[in-house]
Deep mutational scan, measured.
Amino acid sequence: MQRVNMIMAESPGLITICLLGYLLSAECTVFLDHENANKILNRPKRYNSGKLEEFVQGNLERECMEEKCSFEEAREVFENTERTTEFWKQYVDGDQCESNPCLNGGSCKDDINSYECWCPFGFEGKNCELDVTCNIKNGRCEQFCKNSADNKVVCSCTEGYRLAENQKSCEPAVPFPCGRVSVSQTSKLTRAETVFPDVDYVNSTEAETILDNITQSTQSFNDFTRVVGGEDAKPGQFPWQVVLNGKVDAFCGGSIVNEKWIVTAAHCVETGVKITVVAGEHNIEETEHTEQKRNVIRIIPHHNYNAAINKYNHDIALLELDEPLVLNSYVTPICIADKEYTNIFLKFGSGYVSGWGRVFHKGRSALVLQYLRVPLVDRATCLRSTKFTIYNNMFCAGFHEGGRDSCQGDSGGPHVTEVEGTSFLTGIISWGEECAMKGKYGIYTKVSRYVNWIKEKTKLT
């Protein structure tokens, strides 16, 4: 034993070699072989497995989906700052455009905790909710729209109204504003409101030439003092309507412009014939205590009207009353817009006519005020429907199939267009061939041609 100890002390290297040989010859039971080890760690190889990531292109799944990435790591994937920024906006807080917040056709661009709407022409605001041009839906104005110097929408209202708090709607500024039905039992019968379409306001006024200088022999019209197929109006439903009495009662109609003036057809009036105007009328054979009678003290036909040349060209006249009318729910003026808007309103496509005229061709006159909704007829169809001249200051309205029309005794009465609950004068009943005849239409004086003249002559002093 002493000898062994001496050998170990003198030859430590020998001992180490012996131990190493023993270990190498022993069977290893701690580690699995290569094949079995792979069965336990069965993990798919990654895209760049075996390579240094710093030297390969980034992978979106590896960089940002398996674990949260930084902007720089995302930049490695896209290799483009702009594309990385677009991805980053949604990656950080989701897609803010998912709810489609942009209105009126706006395009949404996502941002971090926010979004941006790219608005089409005519709109602005956070969600493109603000109209900035009158060309689109009248700028959301209830009545009139004008573009300011910086191309912003400025709404306005006709006389007797003021802008509401929203700067879009119009509200009454006087007790009985024009064009409004205020009798409670008839307010439910107000005709369907007309909503502004998209309009090209630059070209809204037709490029028409008034044929002022045409000389033409007097034409022989049949029954051209021209509501057939209409309905009984309720008291106060058309408070701007008046009836004219002269040699015979209810020979023509008219509309209240203001307390002192009536507008009617020029062919209705004769110099030297006494005319009485009755406002607030409903049943011409009954006294309903809503009527107001006034005498006409002055007749002003349009300066281009000449019955000797043509009885229905420039067929418009103004009547001055001896005493002002007292405005109330049964006696209310009709609204008159400017030339541009009167023309736009007419193009809405349908209007209402009213009167006490004959209820059928050569038949009896109506006792109760009649009204009828009539569609506008395109000019080409209008011209083809008659052998008589249709001037540019006239328009056609009615039904091709016949059966409904204005008729004798309705002449001078109103053709009105309702705009968001307020009625505007767009025409004056003038003439036609018979009444409600198939293929024939009622012919009306186009008020847009005469609004400046009306307003100039009827100013209240």
Rank of each mutant, 00 (worst) to 15 (best):
Pro333Ala: 06
Ser365Gly: 04
Glu231Val: 09
Gly58Lys: 15
Asp131Val: 05
Val419Arg: 13
Asn245Ser: 06
Ser182Thr: 08
Gly357Glu: 13
Lys311Tyr: 06
Ser182His: 09
Ala164Leu: 07
Asp322His: 05
His302Pro: 02
Gly409Phe: 14
Tyr201Glu: 12
Ile316Leu: 08
Glu72Lys: 15
Thr276Phe: 04
Arg180Met: 04
Val242Arg: 00
Glu72Tyr: 15
Ile210Asp: 11
Ser11Ala: 12
Leu376Ile: 14
Cys145His: 01
Val359Arg: 15
Met437Lys: 11
Lys234Glu: 10
Ser49Ile: 12
Tyr305Leu: 02
Ser411Asp: 15
Lys339Asn: 10
Gln96Leu: 15
Cys134Thr: 02
Gly160Asn: 07
Arg358Phe: 14
Val181Arg: 06
Glu66Tyr: 06
Phe55Thr: 15
Asn328Tyr: 00
Val451Thr: 03
Phe221His: 10
Ile299Glu: 06
Gly412His: 08
Ile262Met: 01
Cys155His: 00
Gly230Met: 05
Asn306Phe: 04
Val374Tyr: 03
Ser354Glu: 03
Asn42Met: 08
Glu53Cys: 10
Ala436Asp: 11
Phe348Met: 11
Pro324Val: 04
Lys347Ile: 03
Tyr441Cys: 05
Val451Arg: 03
Tyr22Pro: 02
Ile136Cys: 06
Thr287Arg: 06
Pro333Ile: 01
Thr276Val: 08
Thr264Ser: 05
Val353Lys: 12
Met437Thr: 14
Gly94Pro: 05
Phe348Gly: 14
Arg404Asp: 14
Glu259Asp: 07
Lys152Val: 12
Ser365Lys: 03
Val263Cys: 02
Pro172Arg: 05
Ser204Phe: 11
Cys108Glu: 00
Thr271Lys: 11
Gly236Arg: 07
Ala192Met: 08
Lys347Phe: 07
Glu142Met: 05
Arg358Ala: 14
Asp131Cys: 10
Thr271Phe: 05
Thr186Pro: 13
Val183Tyr: 10
Cys117Val: 01
Glu281Pro: 09
Arg43Pro: 09
Asp232Gly: 04
Val202Leu: 09
Gly229Ile: 11
Cys117Ile: 01
Pro235Arg: 09
Asp249Trp: 03
Cys435Lys: 04
Phe399Met: 08
Tyr91Glu: 14
Gly363Met: 13
Leu460Ser: 06
Asn295Leu: 06
Met65Lys: 11
Asn328Trp: 00
Gly246Cys: 03
Cys382Thr: 02
Ile300Asp: 01
Val154Gln: 12
Thr458Trp: 00
Ile214Ala: 11
Thr194Ala: 06
Lys234Thr: 06
Val257Cys: 02
Pro375His: 13
His303Pro: 12
Trp240Thr: 00
Asn313Leu: 10
Leu319Asp: 01
Met8Glu: 08
Leu425Gln: 02
Pro172Trp: 03
Val153Tyr: 10
Gly402Lys: 13
His34Val: 09
Arg62Tyr: 05
Glu259Phe: 02
Ala279Pro: 00
Lys137Ala: 07
Thr271Ala: 10
Ser255Asn: 02
Tyr371Pro: 07
Glu76Gln: 14
Gly160Gln: 03
Ser411Glu: 13
Trp240His: 02
Ile112Asp: 13
Lys109Val: 08
Gly13Trp: 03
Glu82Leu: 05
Phe176His: 08
Asp223Ile: 12
Tyr341Ile: 13
Val154Asn: 06
Cys28Ala: 07
His267Glu: 02
Arg3Pro: 07
Phe360Gly: 12
Ile443Pro: 03
Ser385His: 15
Thr342His: 04
Cys396Lys: 02
Asn222Phe: 12
Tyr305Trp: 13
Ile17Met: 13
Thr194Glu: 10
Glu270Asn: 10
Phe87Asp: 15
Val416Asp: 00
Ile344Asn: 04
Val195Phe: 04
Gln57Arg: 10
Glu10Val: 10
Gly403Val: 07
Thr271Ile: 10
Tyr305Ala: 02
Met6Leu: 12
Lys362Glu: 13
Pro239Ser: 02
Trp453Asn: 00
Asn59Tyr: 06
Lys188Thr: 04
Ala397Glu: 02
Tyr161Cys: 00
His289Ile: 10
Ser49Val: 09
Asn36Trp: 07
Gly50Tyr: 09
Met65Val: 11
Asn59Ile: 03
Asn151Glu: 09
Asp93Gln: 15
Thr133Ser: 08
Asn151Trp: 04
Asp410Arg: 13
Met6Glu: 04
Ala337Ile: 02
Glu10Trp: 12
Asp322Ile: 01
Gly254Pro: 00
Phe224Asn: 08
Cys145Glu: 04
Ile443Asp: 01
Asn38Gly: 11
Thr461Val: 13
Gln185Arg: 06
Ser99Cys: 13
Thr389Glu: 15
Asn304Lys: 04
Met65His: 10
Val326Gly: 07
Glu73His: 11
Glu171Tyr: 09
Lys51Thr: 11
Val263Leu: 11
Lys387Asp: 15
Ala397Ser: 07
Asn135Cys: 13
Lys45Ala: 12
